[in-house]
């Protein structure tokens, strides 16, 4: 049985189309990432899977339970951490945890082993009101509350948005540990670098699936040559690179521009082209593509169609 089976899901809000026919499957025990920019439909999909939203069309099931008919069964085995912090800010850390344990008919001590690693970090502040915690601590508390009933599947909606780099890294380590306990995790994120930490990812864009595969396979499918190009005038560099006749695409990427070409370039040729355009401090380097490059590439192809 699959952890999640999603078949041809459509969802629109008035005129806006959030999901336009999404189908995919999530295997038991994997970390599955929904990757895409804001407005890609990640939150809508998670809300449909957590039985909070009805799809307009199509079916979805969690461990064989239909999200509409068997919503009660799903609510017993699912843990959910919404994108917005939604625990009680006027209750303390401890009270929030006890509260969620009690409504699932369990106790904190019963499943303490599951949240121990996470909860230990916020335990010194257990008397503090949840509203007064820092961003990273709030996130750990929310995860503890979502885990306290030992769910079989965990839904995390942009858990690392607005969290500092160190806490993000810690958070993904926690997720890896949970995977070892056998919990299936469906996590959405707008950060492309986090995609490589997932077992499999679904790349989403404007309610459409671009691809579903392991990060390695997605990178393997990349069908262009890629170069990192540098010069002093970044803005002008992008403009000029786009006018270069062998260019497929050129996108800014930090301080450099990622240039994709149909065939291998001779570095001299590009260097000369840029020098003629008046660029200084030129550096060209052949690089391996990352998920973001693949995402851009898939997005461009879809737009061309």
């Amino acid at each position: 049985m699959k952890a999640a089976e999603i078949h041809n899901i459509h969802k629109s809000y008035d005129e806006v189309k959030a999901l336009g026919g999404i189908s995919m499957q999530v295997e038991k025990g994997e970390i599955f990432g929904l990757i895409g920019p804001d407005g890609a439909g990640k939150t809508s999909l998670i809300r449909i899977l957590t039985t909070l939203l009805y799809p307009d069309q199509g079916q979805a099931s969690i461990f064989g339970m239909d999200t509409i008919r068997d919503f009660k069964g799903i609510r017993k085995i699912a843990g959910y951490m919404p994108g917005r912090f939604s625990l009680y800010q006027d209750l303390s850390v401890e009270e929030n945890l006890n509260f969620y344990a009690s409504i699932f008919g369990t106790t904190v001590s019963e499943n303490y082993h599951l949240i121990k690693d996470i909860y230990q970090q916020i335990e010194p502040f257990k008397k503090r009101l949840a509203g007064r915690l820092s961003g990273g601590m709030k996130q750990k508390l929310a995860l503890s509350c979502a885990l306290i009933h030992k769910p079989d599947i965990l839904f995390l909606d942009e858990p690392t948005t607005g969290v500092d780099a160190v806490s993000r890294k810690e958070f993904w380590e926690i997720l890896k540990n949970l995977e070892e306990v056998g919990i299936t995790i469906i996590v959405s994120t707008p950060y492309m670098d986090e995609a490589e930490l997932c077992d499999r990812v679904a790349l989403m864009q404007e309610g459409q699936l671009l691809d579903v595969d392991t990060p390695a396979n997605i990178i393997g499918k990349y069908d262009h040559e890629l170069y990192a190009v540098e010069s002093r005038e970044l803005h002008q560099l992008i403009k000029d690179l786009r006018s270069f006749d062998k260019t497929v695409s050129a996108f800014p990427f930090g301080d450099t521009v990622h240039l994709a070409t149909q065939e291998k370039l001779r570095r001299k040729e590009l260097q000369k082209f840029l020098e003629e355009k008046g660029h200084e401090g030129i550096a060209v380097q052949s690089i391996e593509p990352g998920i973001e490059d693949c995402f851009m590439n898939l997005m461009r192809k879809q737009n061309d169609e």
């Binding site: 909070l52 609510r75 959910y80 912090f85 939604s86 625990l87 800010q89 969620y100 409504i103």
Partner: peptide, 13 residues
Amino acid sequence: ELGTIEQLNVTPI
């Protein structure tokens, strides 16, 4: 408004 109901809705309550 606070969104706490969202979390509560995904419980067997």
